[in-house]
Design a protein around this nucleic acid. Sequence first.
DNA 1: TGACTTACTAAACAGTGTTCATTAAATTTA
DNA 2: TAAATTTAATGAACACTGTTTAGTAAGTCA
Lengths: 202, 202
Amino acid sequence: MGISERKEREKQEMRDLILVESTRMFIEEGYEKTSIRNIADRIEYSPATIYLYYKDKDAILYDIHEQGFEKLSEKLSGMAKIQNPYERLLQMGHLYLQFAFENPEYYDLMFIMRAPMKKLNEEKEWSCGFDNYYFLQDVVKECINAGYLKPIDSELASFSIWSFMHGMVSLAIRERFKMYSEEQVKQLMHDSVRMIVGMMAK
Amino acid sequence: MGISERKEREKQEMRDLILVESTRMFIEEGYEKTSIRNIADRIEYSPATIYLYYKDKDAILYDIHEQGFEKLSEKLSGMAKIQNPYERLLQMGHLYLQFAFENPEYYDLMFIMRAPMKKLNEEKEWSCGFDNYYFLQDVVKECINAGYLKPIDSELASFSIWSFMHGMVSLAIRERFKMYSEEQVKQLMHDSVRMIVGMMAK
DNA sequence: TGACTTACTAAACAGTGTTCATTAAATTTA
DNA sequence: TAAATTTAATGAACACTGTTTAGTAAGTCA
């Protein structure tokens, strides 16, 4: 029976088509213009068809948000080769900022918007978020064990570092740094990473 | 001419009525249920009437967001009596967290949501935001001058502290701390403030 | 070929922010 | 006081939104 397999394949292709075009619209045209009807127009199907492949709009946003985490992981992978864990931690900070500036819409979806989180309140846990957080914790632990950072609680340190990084990025993305120019904000952010991590260093 | 003054007064009263009831709905019923039509129902006027007193929905949200800053200022005023600037800075941090936990909807509007910022892209500057930031800067400067904090750049330090505080709060409000219970998050936050400010101390 | 299943959609529902012509009331002018 | 004018308020519409459902057309199977 090759037919049912072809159908399965076609169903997956349709889901992909919706996801790819939704993502493109979300990134290129912004959240405002990404409505179910606009997506339907783009893929040349009726709005109702989308609901045969995705439960609701939040489910699409959840999948896009997951893709964002894949992109972030790619970005951070360029950091694994650094031997010194303290240098790795610093680089991780700078790459996080770079990711946020290069993909503000993804970042918004991943860490600020409410919509994608609604999906997992009922079903699954937020594994893509957990993975990155535990990854940070491991680097911090390594830094402490190797004596690069003060002997602080690694969980508390990771919590603080992530909060701090996210604070800078989200204030920038949601336009709360109006007292500074964009250039100033970028400069302050990178200086800030050096200062905060520097203060944790022995 | 008492008539034009009475009219002026009535106009202001109507604006107040809209603002008070919008705020009540926003805080009690949440953002979802605060639509122009719902507000109109509540004040027993037609939706179109609201547009005679507010340019658009964002203008209402801007005024509510300003009220939030007043509430925050009140909260922080309970900190002025502390003589020691380092203790004052620490207390400021804890009060900021307390404000956010007691008024998450206000906090969201003040520092996360895009809507209220749209209004001031054309007209004025974000003075209520500026005031609080400069206030923090002053406390930090005082701490440095009095020798409680390391001789770091006060602007960079304030930038970092605010970012860090906001990061914790906004990750909590937008439900990104799913790896912790609510109690754990609160504990981590307050511990975190002590640790970060502690590391800036001499 | 006829029965059944699947894929798709037009149309509707209930909601949103916003605008505008019209009405009714208050105020000013003659 | 009566007429003219200004002001305040609204019903109804516009152009959207996410979502559901009944109905159609095409593909698959017996």
